[in-house]
Nucleic acid binder design. Structure first.
Lengths: 160, 160
DNA sequence: TGCAAATATGTAATGATTACTAAGAAGGAA
DNA sequence: TTCCTTCTTAGTAATCATTACATATTTGCA
């Protein structure tokens, strides 16, 4: 079962941004993907429908979504490329330095962690990234993503 | 009082790497700085003593230290530049997206967090980054680094 | 419908990081 | 100590993700 998150388009509207077909398509792509895509990866996906789409538009849209806090940036997964996070529930991210995939790990301790941050700097926290790096062994695939039932797809491998 | 961490040179030796004056100087610089320097920042610092030092050498040494796990990478602090972490004790990092400084925050919850990661993927964790982003107000300077008594120095502002 | 402001596109620049190669130095063996 | 192999450094050139910019297009409201 593929759970679909929502709210990216709504968040843009609420923040007063205009809706365009490109933004809608990018938001749609983001909300239906449960890996942690890069700009290039999103571009290739949405470009399939919108052949006129520009990579710059993808970067701009991602930047806009970042600024309103609808998504966050996880940084590199060993591939010198920024991976984005759509799941804003507090959780741990596990990144494989070999295949550059990132998966989510539910955590109870992270609530306490964020409470510590809040206490330290008040309400001024804008975003956070909690990422642990490892190597996923091909056999056992310990980084198998709980959100992606077919995590062996090549989706996450955009920039080897 | 400036606390000095140690072990970078020793870690390199134990891992079988040769010691050079450049490496020693870079390790020394790393172990006496309590901000979270970038390659460029380290280069400028060590270059003052070693005028022949190459930026490439700094990158290579940092990469070597990363590979043996003596330091970790925290990624960008809003400046599209990699900041490195010498303090390997588990802790939270607070990054200011305005001045691009990063400071350490002691945490008790992070022990539980790492335990969760260990349980999820066993002993294959290579490194981790726990960074929360904020803006430090000039007046109160909530990100004032606990390690750096004079955190208003410009040391951390290498790449505005 | 018309208009002002926001957005998309495409290309050119930026800049951190890496690749590559020749020269130099470390460290063990004799 | 001296030699020799291997690792390391330095310098420059390349890479490539991301950003800047200028122009054309579109959105959303009056």
């Amino acid at each position: 079962m593929v759970k679909k998150r929502a709210g990216l388009v709504e968040a843009l509207k609420e923040a007063g941004f205009r809706m365009t077909p490109q933004r809608t398509a990018i938001c749609e792509a983001l909300s239906t993907r449960f890996d942690h895509p890069t700009a290039q990866s999103l571009y290739e996906q949405v470009k399939a429908e919108y052949s006129s789409l520009s990579l710059t538009t993808v970067y701009q849209t991602l930047d806009t979504l970042l600024r309103i806090g609808a998504i966050t940036s996880l940084g590199s997964a060993g591939d010198d490329t920024i991976h984005f996070e759509v799941n804003t529930d507090p959780h741990i991210n596990l990144a494989c330095l070999t295949c550059h995939r990132i998966c989510d790990l539910n955590s109870t301790a992270i609530k306490a962690l964020e409470a510590e941050v809040q206490q330290a700097i008040g309400s001024k926290v804008l975003s956070g990234r909690v990422v642990y790096y490892s190597e996923c062994l091909e056999q056992s695939d310990p980084l198998d993503c709980q959100f992606n039932p077919a995590s062996r797809h090549k989706e996450g491998r955009v920039d080897e």
